[in-house]
Write a protein that binds this DNA or RNA. Structure first.
Lengths: 165, 165
DNA sequence: ACTGAAACCGGTTTGAC
DNA sequence: GTCAAACCGGTTTCAGT
């Protein structure tokens, strides 16, 4: 699974455009890339089938939705065993405040990206959903001043990835 | 700026549906929500104008694009002054390996989410783009075992956010 | 906020290379 | 096998109400 797909310049151009605005029409895509609309359609369908394209998502502004404060919580779960981390992950990832959850190497096992209404809401969240859990050994909270989503995700420039050992 | 917008149940229903699949047609939206398609169009246009909806984005699988390893880099930038952090942010956020960048409170000033081809690529990135920079005082690298995007981002349930400014 | 009509688009078919 | 052109049914969009 997860084999890297061979992508030609047309595929890359299409992906770049769709990452800016996933509702770009096939006609616009075609005009921009310099191929026929049906070709764009074929390419996108292939990219969907091959799993490169996971889906189309709406990006919302948390602040405009009344969640003006975001934070990252580093969490130690001890003991770090499947019986404990399964329910923990399931609970945390379904909290309305959670935006993303990472399972990491290093001393802190999880990083949780949350969006809350303010510091009072954040305090409540930390106390009621994290430190109150028996398996949570430590929580470290860092506020997010500012965040940037980075440029389009593209394959590495050369074929350096596969030197098959 | 970033005032919280008054959203009625129709808006919320539409947002929830579009977060699952931002290409849902206005017709489907209308059928699901129980209003006319043109009403959905009006609502979405308003949400776009008011800034709640930032855009429509394609979600890609980094692994299928040859970037099978992801990591979080915690970075200290010293001295932490505008003249230093401006160029640093600009450089890091435009790296093809960068997926997201956070400016944080706490001892580590920045967190960078990167996607690379493998450990060799990660080592190169850390050495060439981070520790080689004069203003970077410390870099801590943690690998991502697994990550989850969390449920739809919605406004907090009650009117606790706005107690009139 | 709904209706309806016209412009537009997605996706299939067909045909050329 | 891949791309381009034609085509149809569905979608978006904009009047008017």
């Amino acid at each position: 699974m997860a084999d890297s797909i061979a992508l030609d310049p047309v595929d890359l151009h299409i992906l770049r455009l769709l990452q800016n605005d996933s509702r770009t029409t096939y006609r616009e895509l075609a005009a921009e890339v310099g191929v026929a609309p049906s070709t764009c359609l074929d390419r996108v369908a292939r990219l969907r089938r091959s799993g490169v394209i996971l889906g189309h998502q709406l990006r919302l502004d948390p602040a405009r939705l009344g969640r003006g404060l975001e934070a990252l919580l580093s969490v130690q779960v001890r003991p770090h065993r499947r019986e404990l981390i399964g329910p923990f992950v399931e609970r945390i990832r379904t909290l309305p405040e959670s935006r993303a959850l990472f399972h990491l190497t290093g001393p802190d096992d999880y990083l949780v990206h949350v969006a809350v209404t303010g510091t009072a809401d954040l305090q409540r969240l930390v106390l009621d959903e994290f430190t109150s859990r028996r398996e949570v050994a430590r929580v470290e909270t860092r506020l997010i001043f500012q965040q940037w989503e980075c440029g389009p995700l593209l394959p590495p420039p050369a074929e350096s990835a596969e030197s098959g050992h």
